[in-house]
Amino acid sequence: MKFALAASGMDNYPPAMAPWEPHAGREEILRYAKKADSLSWDWLTIPEHVIMPNAMVEHMGTRFVEGITAASVLMGATERIHMLTFVLVLPYRHPLLLAKQIATMEFIAGGRFTLGTAVGHLQHEFDCLNVPFEKRGAMADEYIAALKEVWTSDKPKFDGEFVKFGDFVFEPKPVQKPHPPIFIGGNSKPAMRRAAKFGDGWIPWLVTAEDLPECIKYMKSLPEFEAKKDTFEFMCTTTAYNVNDAHIDKGETHISADRDSVLREVESLKKAGATSVQVRPPRLPTFEACLEWIEWYDKEIIPQFR
């Protein structure tokens, strides 16, 4: 099993936010990342939204970082740990620009980046960015293909509906070969098909240990999955978010903190087929207590699943 730790201070998502997080800034964010880097966590996960519609502030909060900028800063502040955008909405960026940003980070930091991406769900965000919401699925599929082309080809060329390019060179290439891993987010069957066809992993966020076996069975039935079955990552969050797909609360979100409960959660996901988990620390009252908890988790939980 691999373990991804949700970065701190990057959002203020009401269902899971600790009381100290709205006041967190540079010092807390960098100390947290460096602490995780000094331990055995595999990834830091980085949330993202460009804007937050007023109608969604109650449910999603106001603070969300931009994923590529945040990943760059944290990669510069760390030596070992990988960054994972969780998730970057792919249609918001031209794939050539995104490919260059990621390749630049990889070149300087020695790899250490995983692109967690999805089609997006906030239509108002699409409208503000002048991106057609109804075409987001087709755009995402084409953008992934364009990213792979420019990252892997000596003479990149692409002729799609949304992207056309050619007659240039592209360097630096990414350090990770053949390209940085791409994990696809989303709970729906289209998201699963996209992950099986284009991705190196799947990162749903409302799929439980009870749901997961059927999802994996479906993905393994897809012909595109066969070639990647030995390396594909199924990453599920250990946080039992009690919200619907629109982030509307259905009740209190529970985050386990004690050893027995945490062990049971990870073990149930492992038995269900997860190869990695994303962990969000519980709502501890202080930042220092949070640092102690992620160190405790590293010593008491992670070694049980290595």
Rank of each mutant, 00 (worst) to 15 (best):
Y218F: 14
G186P: 05
A191N: 12
V150C: 00
F165E: 01
P156F: 04
Q176Y: 11
P172L: 12
F168T: 01
V175H: 10
L212K: 01
I203W: 10
Y241I: 10
F232V: 12
M192C: 12
D159R: 01
A196L: 10
G199F: 08
C236M: 15
G185P: 00
F170Y: 09
D141I: 03
G137Q: 03
D200M: 14
V169E: 13
V175I: 15
Y143H: 12
V207Q: 08
F232R: 11
P223S: 03
F170P: 02
T239D: 05
A196V: 07
P156T: 02
M219A: 02
S188R: 10
M235Y: 09
M192R: 14
P181T: 15
S153M: 00
F168C: 05
G137L: 02
A145F: 03
I182V: 15
K217M: 08
I182P: 02
M192Q: 15
W205Q: 09
M219P: 02
F225G: 01
F234K: 06
F198C: 09
P190H: 13
V207Y: 06
E210A: 13
D230T: 11
E214N: 12
P190I: 10
P223A: 04
E214I: 03
D159M: 07
G201C: 09
L212V: 06
E226M: 08
E149W: 06
A209S: 14
K155P: 00
K228Y: 03
M219D: 01
L206F: 09
I216R: 06
P174N: 11
N187Q: 13
K173C: 01
V175N: 03
M139W: 11
F234N: 07
G199E: 12
L147W: 04
L222D: 09
K220T: 13
S221H: 06
W151G: 00
N242S: 06
S188G: 07
I203E: 12
G166W: 00
F232T: 12
W202M: 10
K157M: 05
S188P: 05
E142L: 07
G137H: 01
L212H: 05
M192S: 10
L212W: 04
T231A: 08
E142C: 01
K173T: 01
P223N: 02
T231R: 08
D141W: 10
F232A: 08
K229D: 10
I144E: 00
